[in-house]
């Protein structure tokens, strides 16, 4: 692994800032996403809301389906592999997927370890609920972090919790002395250099995006105002009554996240959002965010 390789991977994450990454399950949806201004699409067979409803083991998508989407759009195409399933990741890299999401939305393949991501040429994005989790993934080689939120729920509450947690933990270690940083690094199980970087720069060393439960332009604005640099929208678009209009409205909302009048204008055009789930009504063992630490 060269440091050079890592920076090239983070480079693409930098280019996706201020944008929307949309889940799509077929060529038609991918085209709608691109035409609506998506900065990237996530190709997967079933969106999280359906994975949640269907149950069973959820694996990497069929490469044929991913390839069709790659051929249909010109924006970067992402795809998911199971946590710890480095062979799925190798297949996705061979397919030249632009970003690999080692995702808790799929059924984990390894309950102890995530993929060691540094040797890969393809960049990885991983979910996190707190700073320790984010830094462990970055140490393993993740080039982008996103909040886990609670995928497929249409409920923003968990993404808010995770983003606020990460931001407040960053604030907490800003300008701390060496001794406290050492303790923090042991607590988080990451090298002191990573913790020092966060303390010195007031940010994690890779872009920090929001995901999990974003369904409206105001949800996107909320996450951006809380510190997200871009948003992933999973089930929120193609589970709504007006995917095309909603996709574009969320793109507009991310660009103008700090301008309430623009969020209002973007929201006016929309019909009903997806039906959301109350988190406390999801059985504990079905919470996707608990997968991987």
């Amino acid at each position: 692994m060269s440091d050079n390789n890592f920076k090239v991977k983070v480079g693409l994450a930098e280019m996706l800032k201020g944008g929307v990454i949309m889940d799509v399950t077929n060529v038609e949806q991918a085209k709608i996403a691109e035409e609506s201004g998506a900065a990237s699409v996530m190709a997967l067979e079933r969106i999280p809301a359906d994975i949640r409803a269907d149950g069973g083991v959820s694996r990497m998508s069929n490469p044929h389906m991913i390839k069709e989407i790659q051929d249909a759009v010109s924006i970067p195409v992402m795809a998911k592999c199971r946590i710890g399933h480095f062979a799925e990741a190798q297949v996705l890299q061979a397919l030249e997927v632009d970003f690999i999401d080692e995702s808790e939305v799929l059924t984990p393949a390894d309950e102890e370890h995530h993929i060691y991501k540094h040797p890969f040429k393809a960049p990885f994005v991983c979910g996190a609920r707190n700073l320790g989790e984010a830094l462990r993934r970055i140490h393993e080689g993740a080039a982008m972090i996103r909040t886990k939120g609670e995928a497929g729920s249409g409920n923003i509450v968990e993404a808010v919790r995770h983003m606020k947690m990460i931001v407040s933990e960053i604030e907490e270690i800003k300008n701390c002395n060496e001794k406290i940083l050492k303790e923090k690094s042991e607590e988080m199980r990451v090298p002191i250099e990573l913790v020092k970087y966060v303390s010195d720069n007031g940010k994690i060393p890779v872009p920090n995006f929001a995901a999990g439960g974003i369904a409206t332009p105001a949800d996107a604005s909320l996450m951006m105002q809380l510190g997200a640099e871009s948003v992933f929208v999973g089930s929120g678009i193609f589970k709504s009554e007006d995917p095309k209009e909603r996709a574009y409205a969320i793109v507009e909302a991310v660009t103008n996240f700090d301008n309430p009048k623009e969020i209002l204008t973007a929201s006016y055009k929309l019909k009903d959002a997806m039906k959301g789930l109350e988190i406390s009504e999801i059985p504990e063992e079905q919470l996707l965010q608990k997968r991987g630490d």
Partner: peptide, 11 residues
């Protein structure tokens, strides 16, 4: 800047 030219076109 850099980014996605299709997205910037739309905006």
């Amino acid at each position: 800047p850099g980014g996605e030219s299709t997205t910037m076109t739309k905006l």
